[in-house]
Design a protein around this nucleic acid. Structure first.
Lengths: 368, 368
DNA sequence: GCAATCTACGCAAACGTTTGCGTTGTAGTT
DNA sequence: AACTACAACGCAAACGTTTGCGTAGATTGC
């Protein structure tokens, strides 16, 4: 016999510390589990009185629904997967912020994976996410991704898939992208308006839409101005700082070096800027610079870099919305959709040739 | 009757596209589900032959285990939660990289939440993570977190909790931190060795360990040199760029302005640097600067900023290991443990007064 | 006063695993 | 021959939800 006041149950519970489940609530209230479940999800077939009782007890006992169980039963996890090349740097961390905001508003959690610009990693990331039973996947391709085979498994499983920013050319997928051609065009045109005439270009791997289109915009602007597209003024590289230094050194050895550079990334520009200073060339007086992505540090260099801003957060939100929409229309197998966002030119000192007539109309733009 | 070759099952399956489950495998092989389960997890009570059969069929059918179901049954989700103030900036994105690496090596997924330096957000993040049934949580506190109450719920549920970098003073929790006092001390001592004598300090909210300790190191170094700690040379702020500008402007209005600044963040230093240039003061000749965190952009300013590097990735890995260890020792309720990592001084131009005798022993340090 | 309609709730199956225990069949021991 | 011992596998419960269907009792319409 136990002494009065000490039941076996109480003794046990002082050890176990089990989380309260829906069943516990049901027992305490003398109702069925289904009633509790429905009450908690606000079903209207449950009387207001019972709902109140359930909700208050739930709060009192600190009840927290078990998402695993719910997910198992409903066939979905309420989790979204994201694969990005990396989260350092301004662009992707901002995009991720947008994704998280939109996802959590819709009741989804977000699983973030980094491919480190490595296609093998990217493949693993996809496995990881599928293993975690995510309901949908957002991907921005790594720079080394040249084929699509590792996505077959995802599509076979009918897991909704939306790409953003970086996609592979010629593949029919849903995606949210920036109008990179327009970005490249505006950047180059701005340089032309500032009076620069021999404009070089740093570009990334051309199998990626973003780099290809930025270059197209660059070429379009030149042609529109009746200028030739010089092969020796285009440098295709990996977009690292070092690549910018190396590329700029090459440019400066040309018989006719460029008087401006439009780069598809701010990173290369930093390297280029260093080399220019080494050579005693002044920016923007001798050489004008325009970058892409509007990285945080672009405001910190001397001079500050003109760059194309991509509304990163909006991009993230849009991609998430498209994914959620795709998920809703699951069975229907509608054709892929594309959303195109317009980028902004952020004019700063690196491309403003003071004293030039063309400057008059352009004023430094502040970022919202 | 159905026409030959078309069974009801086939017809159905052509529509449903169900993912293969362990049960499907069992049926195909005429064994029980438990056998399949054990075979897949490499149990030795299953004959080698059957194991092989199961594994090959699993691969053939593209079987992917359902983590939700497994998690439900085993009482854990194999997911870790992380709460960071933000993931932009070098520090936290690197730390997260370390966390991910260590976690995935141990078979865990990682859920990342950003508090945006907001304690209310932080509270929501915790709810989110608990809701997602994570098995453990890693937290670096937001700058506005001054009390601990929102962590009670986590501890009540016995969810293993490890803090990293930013913790609240006087709370008994497991944590992996940097030796910030040593960092502050070395930074300040370096400035003293370079001949600077009137050294100012930018600090963050003093309820956070990191800012308090960095300041302590600063003061210790001054005292050791027989220098007074001047109240007017210490600026406690929010560590934004703007705060740096504003603070520097104040410093310059003093009757005796400082000849160097040790800042607890690189960000403020960028603002300060701008102001110094405005006033025509040269760095490092007139004013020396040393920051903290070794942000990416610290190598891009003019001049490059000397800063304290924190081995971000190692920090992330250490924190994860401590968490995993804590999870293993769950029931035992051992006392909290602390791990302290040593930071590194990265000397760059902003603090190198050439021509000073003291310079001889110090050479620019490269970062691994 | 009786069928029809609602309201508010309960029953039980299902989601895909894991795991303690029970059950075969075979080999080895005495 | 009767026994134990062990290897290899099956049974069924359990994890915590959700949800289709069923069913009391109350209300309505005529």
């Amino acid at each position: 016999m136990l002494p009065p006041g000490i039941s076996g149950g109480a003794l046990y519970s002082s050890v176990a510390k089990k989380r309260a489940s829906i069943t516990d609530l049901a027992q305490q209230l003398n109702v069925s589990v289904s009633t509790v479940s429905r009450a908690l999800s606000g079903h209207r077939t449950i009387s207001e009185a019972t709902t109140r009782r359930v909700v208050t007890l739930a709060k009192e006992m600190g009840y927290q629904p078990n998402n695993l169980a719910a997910g198992l039963r409903r066939g979905r996890s309420n989790m979204l997967g994201v694969v990005v090349p990396h989260i350092d740097g301004n662009f992707f961390s901002q995009v991720v912020k947008g994704i998280e905001a939109a996802a959590s508003k819709a009741g989804y959690h977000v699983l973030i994976c980094q491919s480190n610009e490595n296609v093998a990693h990217e493949r693993e990331n996809l496995e990881t996410l599928m293993n975690a039973q995510v309901d949908g996947i957002l991907v921005s391709l790594s720079r080394t991704t040249r084929e699509f085979r590792h996505f077959d498994k995802v599509r076979k499983r009918d897991i909704p898939l939306v790409f953003f920013d970086r996609i592979l050319e010629g593949h029919d997928v849903s995606a949210v992208v920036i109008d990179d051609r327009a970005g490249g065009y505006r950047a180059t045109k701005h340089l032309l308006e500032q009076g620069y005439r021999r404009i070089a270009h740093f570009g990334g791997p051309q199998h990626l839409n973003i780099y290809k289109h930025r270059r197209q915009g660059y070429e379009d602007a030149l042609r529109e101005h009746g200028l030739p597209v010089a092969e020796e003024l285009v440098c295709i590289c990996d977009m690292k700082m070092e690549d910018g230094s190396a590329g700029m050194r090459q440019f400066l050895q040309l018989p006719q070096p460029p008087d401006a550079v439009f780069s598809a990334s701010d990173f290369t520009l930093v390297g280029a800027l260093e080399v220019l200073k080494e050579h005693g060339l002044r920016v923007p007086e001798d050489v004008g610079l325009v970058g892409f992505s509007n990285e945080l540090f672009s405001r910190l260099t001397e001079p500050k870099l003109t760059s194309i801003d991509q509304h990163c957060e909006l991009l993230g939100r849009s991609a998430t919305h498209l994914l959620l929409q795709t998920m809703e229309e699951q069975g229907q197998h509608l054709p892929p959709r594309h959303v195109v966002l317009q980028p902004n030119l952020c004019v700063r000192a690196s491309s403003l040739r003071t004293g030039t007539a063309a400057t008059a109309s352009v004023r430094p733009e502040t970022i919202k």
